[in-house]
């Protein structure tokens, strides 16, 4: 299956890796694998200590008012531009969507004015110049922009490993027209992995169904939340995949932490594991499963997969 994702102009630098609270606390390997890949793809980036939380979890859980989110987004944009790294590279689709949404709202004069009133207290302003410079990209988009360098970097072939993408709703559905590729059949994760020899799934039943997390739904309506996750797990199992690849820690968390629990309670088997796309690409390119990909943070046992792809042999990097 040839790649269906269109090529985009290569991003080689000016990137601020936008740290995500969920990635940092739940799956730190996603951040380290992304950095590891940036280094190999010759993408110049910084991690900016001035960057703060996107507030997306709070906002989407109806805990924070939007003006707060807007102020934080405007400030994060200012610090990225000040640091000369205006391309915000998101590891999390929540960060991606909330910042893009804020970008749009900040084009409305009264909201910009209100936001700048608050920013003035910390000596900053979201100006036309900042608005013009700041760019919002999912980390996978940046990796895709450099995908031509992958084939020659492959150290561990993933021949015979079948992967399916779980597309993140907040990447694909909030700004469908800005998705790189087909918003209804998002393929960057599988297209990135193609040179490693994986078997791609492409479209499958309920590919666009969400993970079930639903922000506060996970906590206030757990039965509905988990029922959706189970439905998606069943569909993925029907495709006989080995790995479900993710692009959002919220989804990965919902699946990885609930996978075995749902299997037991439903008395069903879903014989596959969950990894972030960056983790699996990095593994194929020879990254260390522990120090780079952080697989020990996963609830599911990914060791059989690592054995199968030879990732427990000494890395030949």
């Amino acid at each position: 299956m040839a790649p269906t994702t269109p090529d985009i102009p290569p991003v080689t630098g000016g990137v601020q890796l936008f740290r995500s609270c969920l990635v940092t606390t739940e799956y730190p390997g996603v951040e380290s694998a992304s950095k590891w890949l940036f280094d190999r793809f010759d993408v110049e980036y910084i991690v900016n200590p001035d960057q703060t939380c996107c507030t997306g979890l709070g906002y989407y859980s109806d805990l924070l008012p939007f003006p707060t989110t807007l102020g934080v987004a405007a400030r994060n944009a200012c610090v990225a531009v000040e640091a000369g790294h205006p391309i915000q590279s998101y590891l999390c689709s929540t960060c991606y969507a909330i910042n893009k949404k804020s970008r749009n709202v900040l084009e409305v004069p009264e909201f910009r004015k209100q936001t700048n009133k608050a920013l003035a207290k910390i000596g900053r302003e979201y100006t036309d110049s900042v608005a013009g410079e700041i760019k919002h990209m999912h980390t996978l988009e940046i990796l895709w922009s450099r995908h031509h360098s992958i084939p020659k970097l492959v150290k561990r072939r993933l021949d015979g490993i079948k992967v399916a993408t779980h597309p993140a709703c907040h990447y694909c559905k909030v700004f469908p027209d800005e998705v790189v590729g087909d918003a209804e059949n998002f393929m960057i994760p599988e297209d990135l992995l193609e040179p490693t020899g994986v078997i791609k799934t492409g479209s499958y039943n309920e590919k666009t169904t969400h993970c079930g997390a639903g922000f506060r739904q996970r906590f206030v309506n757990p039965s509905i939340s988990v029922a959706v996750t189970r439905q998606k797990l069943r569909r993925l199992a029907e495709e006989k995949i080995d790995v479900c690849v993710h692009m959002c820690p919220n989804c990965a968390l919902q699946f990885d932490r609930h996978h075995s629990i749902i299997e037991q309670s439903a008395n069903e088997e879903y014989p596959f594991v969950h990894l972030h796309t960056q983790q699996l690409v990095a593994l194929a390119l020879g990254a260390d499963p522990d120090t780079v990909c952080g697989v020990k943070a996963h609830s599911q046992d990914v060791e059989p997969l690592l054995q199968r792809i030879g990732a427990r042999e000494r890395a030949r990097v």
């Binding site: 087909d182 209804e184 059949n185 479209s203 590919k207 666009t208």
Partner: peptide, 9 residues
């Protein structure tokens, strides 16, 4: 073009 509707698949 409306992939989730399954036409062609």
């Amino acid at each position: 073009r409306k992939r989730p509707l399954g036409f062609g698949r």
